[in-house]
Design a protein around this nucleic acid. Structure first.
Lengths: 199, 199
DNA sequence: GGAACTCCATACGCAGCAGTATGGGTTTGA
DNA sequence: TCAAACCCATACTGCTGCGTATGGAGTTCC
């Protein structure tokens, strides 16, 4: 009576991905520098022996976590929003979507916390380039010239980064504004010029 | 031939303040967690023996540096800006002054980096409360109701925090906007409602 | 000119965490 | 069933940084 192709693969073996997920949670909560091998091992109920079988070293784990985030990021953003034809509507959807993704926003804020880390820097730089380029293009599609589009994109990105920084560091200050969508709507109204007269 | 009342006080003795200044520089550059006693001692050309004579422990130094910053902060802000009679002009001056103080802005961004530190949290919370209260009051003076004043104050503060966060983490992204005053002017125009008709 | 005080160097103990070495238990495949 | 591959535990070394203990040089005060 052979067990029918249980193929259970393993009993309670940890996969590389489990470590990456745990590291991601740690980064979101306490920053990159808090990713320590031994405490993570204790939290996962194993020892360092497991870790150093899956990863070359600590940097390897951190890099894997950051790359996983970057993949999630740049995956479908362009595809999803470039499909919206009306540039005004596209810009508003972009803004609201960015502010409503709490998890991603807080992880970004946590990454900014570790901006000094040479492992983190390139990811932050690429994220900034990607997002600002997206914003600049969106504002240009509205008919603004490059300089003005850059100014507004930077303002929008700063408002985004600052919002999640405040939400992370001093949540009490943010929740005094009860209506997030009102906040974003004001930002959108401030940045998106009044509808051009039909010409 | 006695040396005439040299009263030089001491040859090259370090004062407590010297340590605080060094810690402040370190915080501005690398965050609170980078304030380590032994490296600081090496940088100052002394040993830990000096440090532990002036301070009880590491926390003592960090607390002293943070308090020095807070003092500088809340010193004359209210006195300086509440003197401006016109609320519209007062608000604009406030905004420009905040963005032009690079040193303070970057130190604030560096502090936000260490927001997880229980020593830093209270200082960040107090700073947020103080600044937001100032902003809310300024917008209320413009005739806005409380909810709207809060929304705009939060937007302004987020734009401030985000700007310096980006300046710290990805300076290249910010300098693509060459004109800071243009950025601030846009923010001011977006937030300060058009001049009310004289009634 | 000696005692007390100030400021700092030296030398230690201790804890946390990175990384390595090695062996053992379990699963898989032939 | 036996060997190989897989996955992890144990036990080390090494480094960094906190905090303490103690002594000693320079200064001040009497």
């Amino acid at each position: 009576m052979t067990i029918p192709k249980k193929k259970s693969r393993n009993r309670n073996h940890l996969s590389r991905e489990v470590w990456v997920q745990a590291a991601t949670r740690t980064i979101a909560q306490e920053g990159v520098q808090a990713v320590a091998v031994e405490p993570l091992a204790v939290a996962l109920g194993v020892t360092k022996g497991s870790f150093y079988w899956h990863f070359a070293n600590r940097d390897d784990l951190i890099h894997a976590a950051l790359e996983a985030w970057e993949q999630d990021q740049s995956l479908d953003v362009v595809a999803r929003y470039s499909a919206i034809p009306d540039p005004r509507r596209r810009l508003r959807v972009l803004l609201f979507a960015a502010f409503e993704d709490l998890e991603n926003g807080l992880f970004f804020a946590a990454l900014s916390v570790s901006s000094g880390d040479p492992r983190v820097q390139p990811f932050l730089v690429r994220a900034a380039e990607r997002r600002l380029a997206l914003g600049v293009a969106a504002f240009q599609d509205l008919g603004l010239d490059l300089a003005e589009a850059r100014e507004r994109a930077l303002l929008a990105y700063a408002a985004y980064a600052g919002y999640f920084q405040l939400l992370r560091t001093t949540p009490g200050a943010v929740t005094s504004v009860t209506d997030l969508s009102g906040y974003v709507r004001r930002l959108a109204e401030a940045l998106v010029p009044a509808k051009a007269p039909r010409l």
